[in-house]
Design a protein around this nucleic acid. Structure first.
Length: 271
DNA sequence: GAGTATGTTATATG
DNA sequence: GCATATAACATACT
């Protein structure tokens, strides 16, 4: 059986951080011997030929993450991987394959494989990480953004808070699940307008986002191992609110399913 | 078959 | 520019 990153959920920041640590622990110092693009549709900004030219013969030096983007430094360039909705990384033996193999980086021994059933993932080349951040217009990384910076990026916005948290140009890395968790813990209704929040409330929310992401990383993104009181331990319509036992409800905001506690997260008069 | 899915991007409308 | 809504991408699962 191949050696895999042990998550199965759709990747948000903590899951990508697990993938980054996986690459850091297992691949640094190893030489790239071959490279195969198994699904050309998933090539983001480079050709298979250019990727071979840039990476083969060089050594894996480091692994970085910005939001949900993974960047593996190989020689003078970075292999960029976005896991999309269903991507995962695996270290396999030379003769092993995963069921939905889309990209294979052959090493001196074994290979790094990107497996992705739904094919929403992407891979490509960036010379500098800053190039990716500018091109994709990514905000600061959600795990490390200082509260003051978080507040400044929300100021002046009038939309509902939840879609703003999911907007990668405001802060990078928050997805649908962790947005729900942070808003639940702050007792904020997801439709609360950003301009109805006080500076203090915004700062608290920024801090809460970091704490929630960090808590997930601490339990290796196994959500059932999160501390008591976390919504994500049992996030589904009808489940009891971990704080007041009221049945959780599902609504749609910004086109995304949102789970909240109607008692703890009351709407404000001014919406 | 219908409905759902945790991401991103494009397009349209006001 | 901003906010909102919708579709599209491709596949798996209930």
């Amino acid at each position: 059986m191949y050696d895999a990153v042990d998550y199965v959920r759709m990747p948000e920041l903590p899951e990508v951080e697990m993938a980054r640590r996986f690459v850091e622990e297992r691949l640094i110092g190893r030489r790239v011997a071959s490279l195969d693009v198994k699904d050309g549709k998933m090539l983001a900004n480079a050709s298979e030929r250019s990727m071979k030219n840039v990476f083969i013969g060089n050594t894996v030096d480091d692994a970085y993450r910005h939001g949900k983007n993974l960047l593996v430094k190989i020689g003078d360039h970075h292999l960029h991987i976005h896991l999309g909705m269903s991507g995962s990384l695996h270290l396999v033996n030379d003769r092993e394959n995963t069921s939905h193999e889309r990209f294979r980086l052959g090493l001196d021994e074994g290979a790094l494989v990107l497996d992705d059933p739904r094919r929403f993932g992407r891979f490509g080349i960036y010379h500098r990480i800053e190039d990716l951040i500018m091109e994709k217009e990514l905000g600061p990384d959600a795990l490390t953004v200082p509260e003051k910076v978080f507040v400044s990026r929300l100021e002046g916005r009038r939309g509902s808070i939840k879609p703003l948290l999911l907007d990668q140009s405001i802060i990078a890395g928050v997805g649908n699940l962790y947005a729900d968790e942070a808003l639940f813990q702050e007792r904020l209704h997801p439709a609360t307008r950003a301009d109805s929040l006080s500076i203090t409330e915004m700062a608290r929310l920024g801090k809460r986002i970091r704490k929630v992401l960090d808590a997930s990383i601490t339990v290796r993104t196994e959500l059932s191992r999160l501390p008591e009181g976390f919504l994500l331990r049992d996030r589904r319509e009808g489940a009891p609110c971990p704080r007041c036992a009221t049945a959780l409800m599902a609504i749609r905001i910004g086109g995304r399913t949102t789970i909240l506690c109607p008692a703890c997260q009351s709407q404000r008069a001014k919406q």
